Computed example of a mutant assay.
Amino acid sequence: MDILWQYQFRIILLGDSTVGKSSLLKRFTDGIYSDVADPTVGVDFYARSIDIEPGVKIKLQLWDTAGQERFRSITTSYYRNSVGGLLVFDLTNRKTFDHVREWHREVSEHILPHHMVYILIGHKSDLSRDRKVTRDEAEQLAAELGIRYVETSAKCNSNVERAFELLTRDIYELMKMGEISTRDGWDGVKSGLTAKVLYPAEEEAEREKSCNC
């Protein structure tokens, strides 16, 4: 039986083929890493839950998309039903970094008039000698896109947990502010059987102060 969750977020991983999206997901969901990975065909599915704060469990539906152009018509159908996206590039492959804007633009256009919460991921940080993209360049791109930037390594298990948790927290905070909410016909965010009534942080603090229980 699945552990009760308050909310379910659908997250999609985006980026060129071979940047390591599948490796990130397997490390995050199963705690394993393999140097050999078969290319993703179409879309693969993963799941894991995170305790985002006391009494609030978020179930993450994680969709691993194929980076090859021939699968693009399949993967675009998943954009609209996702609330968050990890834009992943390979720190040792300049071309994958140059393509981040294209991925961001393509997804953003497909989900209009709605928006997606993104985080930029520079992957394979363990291969520092082969690095082709500087941290400053990546941080500048992230700033231009208005999103966070995190460098990860599935091989060394560096910042993998942090990347997914940051994105989850950003979505959750936007829900508290009323900028994201569940809506009919959309699977990006779903409420569980024990959904919590959300309040902005300031209002939550005031409610706790006034509580006599």
Rank of each mutant, 00 (worst) to 15 (best):
G20F: 03
S191L: 12
P200F: 07
L24I: 14
F164P: 01
W5G: 00
M175G: 08
C156D: 15
I58E: 10
R27L: 12
Q68H: 12
H123Q: 09
A154L: 07
K124F: 00
Y7L: 05
L193H: 02
S181Q: 10
T75Q: 05
S181M: 01
L198N: 07
T75C: 02
I180L: 15
S158R: 13
Y46A: 13
S191I: 00
Y172C: 01
E144Q: 15
E151A: 13
V41M: 15
S108E: 10
R169Y: 02
V150Q: 10
Q6N: 15
V150L: 14
D136G: 03
E102Q: 14
A47Y: 12
L62F: 03
R101K: 14
R101W: 05
S108Y: 04
R169V: 05
S49D: 14
S108R: 08
L174K: 15
R169W: 02
R148T: 07
G146T: 07
V197Y: 11
I50R: 04
F97Q: 10
T182D: 12
L4T: 05
E179Y: 08
S125G: 05
V133I: 15
E208L: 12
L145Q: 06
Y33C: 04
I119K: 01
T152W: 06
S108N: 11
I74G: 04
H123Y: 04
V150S: 00
S34V: 02
R129Y: 10
L174S: 13
R129F: 11
Q140N: 12
K190T: 08
L87C: 13
Q61W: 09
T134W: 08
H104L: 04
D90E: 06
F97N: 09
S73D: 10
A37I: 13
G85T: 05
L25F: 06
Q6I: 06
K132G: 03
G20C: 06
V107W: 03
L25A: 10
Y33F: 15
R72C: 07
F9V: 08
P39W: 05
G178K: 05
Q6A: 14
A205Y: 01
R94C: 03
N157K: 10
R48C: 04
S128M: 13
S158L: 14
H115M: 07
L127F: 12
G188F: 00
A143G: 10
L145K: 04
R10M: 11
V36G: 00
F89S: 01
E202V: 06
D184V: 03
D38G: 07
H115R: 01
E204H: 11
E161V: 09
L24H: 09
V19D: 13
E179I: 00
R70C: 04
S181D: 05
K190F: 02
K26C: 14
K21R: 12
Y118S: 02
A37L: 14
R169A: 07
V88H: 11
E204W: 08
F28H: 10
D136P: 06
P200E: 12
E206S: 09
G20N: 09
W186A: 00
K26L: 15
D64Q: 07
A195G: 05
S73N: 10
E179A: 11
L127P: 12
A201I: 08
I11K: 01
R183K: 15
I3W: 06
K132N: 04
V133M: 03
P200C: 09
R135D: 12
